[in-house]
Computed example of a mutant assay.
Amino acid sequence: MKKQNLITGGVYLVLDPEMNRATLLHKLKEALTGGVRLLQVWNNWPASFGLSAKQDLIGDILAVASAYSVPLLINEEWQLLKDTGLAGVHFDTIPADYEVIKAEIKRDFICGITCGNDLEAVRWAEQNRVDYISFCAMFPSLSAGSCEIVSPETVKKAREITQIPFFLSGGITTENMAALQELDFAGVAVISGILNAASPQKSAAAYIYALNKLKK
């Protein structure tokens, strides 16, 4: 299977490593049972975490995710791909040394990038044949606080540039997703909408239902 075929859309869960580990792993398993198809470890580590602590947590997450055959990506810290089973990396901005990064990783990996209203990241993604683009933020969100609000016109213009799968993120709920119906996107990226839910399994399933309803 080509790595590109792994990114077909659906619900993309971004994990917050600051959460209590046992709680995070429990919620992760529930979310995967609910149908989450892609995972990322957010670059929001506890201040006390060094390299070995990060590798340990990644190992624990991989042990859960592997049972569901769901790929796990890391936010920004691509060096962690060298000594773990991570499937890829998500960049918040265009990396200045992408060719060097690819040479150092020395294996095939999934790559995604965040895009705001500046379409330069989309052009870079198309030129470098990355696997997906995540637009942040479509709505106000505490966890996506550093993202600007992306206009629907930006997403439409981006689709004229590339056919790379799009994920929409930032403040997306099952209720407001209908406002995005006119846009061409493959999936949604979520943090608190699933991790803070009373039942991550039911929440993930609800996102999938809302997403599928838009595509009918």
Rank of each mutant, 00 (worst) to 15 (best):
residue 34 G to L: 06
residue 37 R to M: 02
residue 38 L to P: 01
residue 38 L to H: 06
residue 41 V to E: 08
residue 41 V to W: 09
residue 41 V to N: 09
residue 42 W to R: 15
residue 43 N to K: 08
residue 44 N to T: 00
residue 44 N to R: 14
residue 45 W to S: 00
residue 45 W to R: 06
residue 48 S to G: 06
residue 49 F to I: 04
residue 49 F to E: 03
residue 50 G to Q: 10
residue 54 K to G: 00
residue 56 D to F: 05
residue 56 D to H: 08
residue 57 L to A: 03
residue 60 D to I: 02
residue 60 D to C: 04
residue 60 D to H: 12
residue 60 D to K: 15
residue 62 L to V: 01
residue 65 A to D: 04
residue 66 S to K: 14
residue 66 S to N: 15
residue 67 A to P: 04
residue 68 Y to T: 03
residue 69 S to I: 01
residue 70 V to K: 15
residue 71 P to W: 12
residue 71 P to D: 09
residue 71 P to F: 11
residue 72 L to G: 06
residue 72 L to F: 09
residue 73 L to S: 07
residue 74 I to N: 10
residue 75 N to V: 00
residue 76 E to D: 13
residue 77 E to W: 12
residue 77 E to R: 15
residue 77 E to D: 14
residue 78 W to F: 12
residue 79 Q to A: 09
residue 81 L to V: 03
residue 82 K to Y: 06
residue 83 D to W: 07
residue 84 T to C: 06
residue 85 G to T: 03
residue 85 G to M: 04
residue 86 L to A: 07
residue 89 V to E: 11
residue 90 H to F: 06
residue 90 H to N: 10
residue 93 T to Y: 15
residue 94 I to K: 14
residue 94 I to V: 12
residue 95 P to E: 06
residue 95 P to Y: 09
residue 98 Y to N: 10
residue 100 V to A: 15
residue 101 I to H: 13
residue 102 K to R: 13
residue 103 A to E: 12
residue 103 A to K: 14
residue 103 A to C: 08
residue 104 E to S: 11
residue 104 E to W: 11
residue 105 I to C: 08
residue 105 I to T: 09
residue 107 R to K: 12
residue 109 F to L: 05
residue 111 C to A: 13
residue 112 G to V: 00
residue 113 I to H: 15
residue 113 I to R: 14
residue 114 T to P: 07
residue 118 D to N: 13
residue 118 D to L: 08
residue 119 L to E: 09
residue 120 E to I: 02
residue 121 A to D: 09
residue 121 A to M: 10
residue 124 W to L: 04
residue 125 A to H: 08
residue 125 A to S: 05
residue 125 A to V: 00
residue 125 A to L: 03
residue 126 E to H: 13
residue 126 E to C: 07
residue 126 E to S: 14
residue 126 E to I: 02
residue 129 R to L: 05
residue 130 V to S: 09
residue 131 D to C: 02
residue 131 D to Y: 08
residue 131 D to G: 06
residue 132 Y to H: 13
residue 132 Y to L: 04
residue 135 F to V: 00
residue 136 C to F: 05
residue 138 M to L: 07
residue 139 F to P: 08
residue 140 P to D: 02
residue 140 P to L: 01
residue 141 S to W: 00
residue 144 A to H: 11
residue 146 S to P: 00
residue 146 S to I: 01
residue 147 C to E: 05
residue 150 V to S: 08
residue 151 S to G: 03
residue 151 S to L: 03
residue 151 S to R: 13
residue 152 P to R: 05
residue 152 P to K: 09
residue 156 K to L: 01
residue 157 K to L: 02
residue 157 K to I: 00
residue 158 A to M: 02
residue 159 R to P: 05
